[in-house]
């Protein structure tokens, strides 16, 4: 049985097509990432799967239950951490957790092992009002509250947005621990570099999935030839590269530029367009310290190719 099975879900807001018919399945125990920019439809999808919003058409089954007919069953079994902090600001840390536990007819003690690693970090502040916590502590409290009833499936909507790289890494370490407890995790993120921490991902853009697969398979299927290029003047290099007819796309990636290359030369010439040809071209444009290497694509390269 699939943990989640979605078939042709569509949802409009007036004239805006937020979801244009998405279908996918999530296997029990996997971390499934929904990866794409703001406005792609991630939150709409999460709200439909957590039975907080009705789709216009299509079906969705969560842990064997239909999101429309069996919504009450689903609400008992899933944990949901919305993108916006939604706990009770005027209650203390401990009071928030107690409320969530009692709503789900359990106690903090009963499932303490699940939240222990996370909750211990905020326990020293358990008498502080939730509204007075720092961003990182709020995030940990929200995750604890979403976990306290031992959900079968955990829905995390952009848990790391606006979070610095170090705290993001710590958060993903917590998710890996929860996976070991057998919890299925659906997580959305706009950060492409988090794709590799998921078992499988769906790349989403403008209400449609561009691709669903493991990060490794997506990267392996990248069809273009990709080079990394550097020189002494990176800003001018970007413009110069774009003028060359064999360079199809050129974008900045940190301290290097990634270019996709068409290696065909005009008829009559035997060899293919290579490093030497590009280097000659750049030297002619008076670049120095030129470095060109062939590289494997990352998820961000793939997203840009698929979105094109």
């Amino acid at each position: 049985m699939h943990a989640v099975k979605v078939h042709e879900i569509k949802r409009n807001y007036n004239k805006v097509e937020a979801l244009k018919g998405v279908s996918f399945e999530v296997r029990p125990g996997e971390i499934f990432g929904i990866i794409g920019p703001d406005g792609a439809g991630k939150t709409t999808l999460f709200r439909i799967l957590t039975t907080l919003l009705l789709a216009d058409s299509g079906t969705a089954i969560v842990d064997g239950n239909d999101v429309v007919k069996d919504f009450k069953e689903i609400r008992k079994k899933v944990g949901y951490m919305p993108g916006r902090f939604s706990l009770y600001q005027d209650l203390t840390v401990e009071e928030n957790l107690t409320i969530f536990a009692s709503i789900f007819k359990t106690t903090i003690e009963e499932n303490y092992h699940l939240i222990k690693d996370i909750y211990q970090q905020i326990e020293p502040f358990k008498n502080r009002r939730a509204g007075a916590l720092s961003g990182g502590m709020k995030q940990k409290l929200a995750l604890s509250c979403a976990l306290i009833h031992k959900p079968v499936i955990l829905f995390l909507d952009e848990p790391t947005t606006g979070v610095d790289p170090v705290s993001r890494k710590e958060f993903w370490e917590m998710l890996a621990n929860l996976k070991r407890e057998g919890i299925t995790i659906l997580v959305s993120t706009p950060y492409m570099d988090e794709a590799n921490l998921c078992d499988r991902i769906a790349l989403i853009r403008e209400g449609s999935f561009l691709k669903i697969d493991s990060p490794q398979n997506i990267v392996n299927q990248y069809s273009k030839r990709l080079w990394s290029v550097r020189s002494n003047d990176m800003s001018r290099l970007l413009k110069d590269l774009r003028t060359h007819k064999n360079i199809m796309t050129c974008f900045a990636f940190g301290d290097t530029h990634h270019v996709t290359v068409n290696q065909e030369k005009p008829s009559g010439e035997e060899d293919r367009f290579g490093f030497k040809d590009l280097k000659d071209f750049l030297e002619e444009k008076s670049h120095s310290e030129i470095e060109i290497t062939a590289i494997d694509a990352g998820i961000e390269d793939c997203f840009m190719e698929l979105a094109n």
Partner: peptide, 20 residues
């Protein structure tokens, strides 16, 4: 202040070209 949070990879790069 975090001008590119949440925007897609292409838009993020085009934005940096505006900064330049």
């Amino acid at each position: 202040d975090e001008p590119t949070g949440g925007v897609d990879p292409l838009a993020r790069r085009q934005f940096w070209e505006l900064i330049y």
